[in-house]
């Protein structure tokens, strides 16, 4: 464990708490893409189900359980408790265009052609693109509540911090995980535009608004 990865994971944790806080305080899931959240459930379940047969560490175990449980809970809040506040007419990204190619990539690029390893690859590719419905929705509405942008910033920071972690591990341990690194770079790049607007508006105390 190095500091980059620790702060990356903490940032990921923070993003979940920010999202839960947003839903609870505004009593609404307005501005949150249900499709992105559903993809995260698929990502975490397919990747972290290995807690059933693989023991890494207590830290690893607790985090995995937390991410599976919290993502399911968020889906429950969106689908049941705050259902009326979700507007599917603006959450229109075609998810099938993501899942198909990711499944194909997972079949080609994996560390071992076994069910669980292909599933792991799929979760990595899917995670890298899971934010697209959310960003697409942001693009459509052209603005976002400040709390929602903090959520996205924390989520983006998580994968961004994994990049120096990989560089550090390459030099200190001599290991590299090309699948995770490639997908991680793509995922971080997707946030570039968002981060630019976030730092030039929200951090300066203005509302997040995309140029028309």
């Amino acid at each position: 464990m190095n500091l980059f990865r620790l702060f990356g994971d903490l940032s990921h944790l923070a993003s979940i708490f920010i999202l839960l806080h947003k839903i609870r305080t505004t009593r609404s899931c307005r501005g949150i893409s249900f499709k992105t959240q559903a993809l995260y459930v698929a990502v975490f379940v397919s990747r972290y189900l290995d807690i059933l047969w693989e023991w890494v560490s207590l830290y690893n175990f607790v985090m995995k359980v937390f991410f599976i449980a919290s993502s399911c809970f968020i889906l429950y809040l969106m689908k049941m408790k705050y259902r009326p506040t979700h507007d599917p007419s603006i959450d229109t990204f075609r998810v099938e265009f993501l899942v198909g190619p990711c499944a194909l990539l997972a079949l080609i690029f994996n560390y071992k052609f076994t069910f669980t390893e292909v599933l792991w690859s799929l979760s990595i590719f899917l995670e890298s693109l899971a934010i697209l419905p959310q960003l697409f929705m942001l693009q459509r509405t052209g603005e976002a509540e400040t709390i929602t942008t903090h959520y996205l910033a924390a989520l983006g920071a998580y994968r961004a911090l994994y990049i120096p972690n990989w560089i550090y591990r390459y030099f200190s341990e001599g290991v590299v995980d090309p699948i995770a690194v490639t997908a991680g770079l793509v995922q971080t790049a997707l946030y570039a535009d968002f981060f630019y607007v976030y730092f030039t508006t929200v951090i300066q105390g203005q509302k997040f608004e995309l140029p028309a």
């Binding site: 464990m1 390893e117 972690n165 290991v175 995980d177 090309p178 995770a180």
Partner: peptide, 10 residues
């Protein structure tokens, strides 16, 4: 250089 999946990463 080893190419492998980092099992301890989340």
């Amino acid at each position: 250089m080893d190419q492998q999946r980092a099992k301890d990463e989340l």
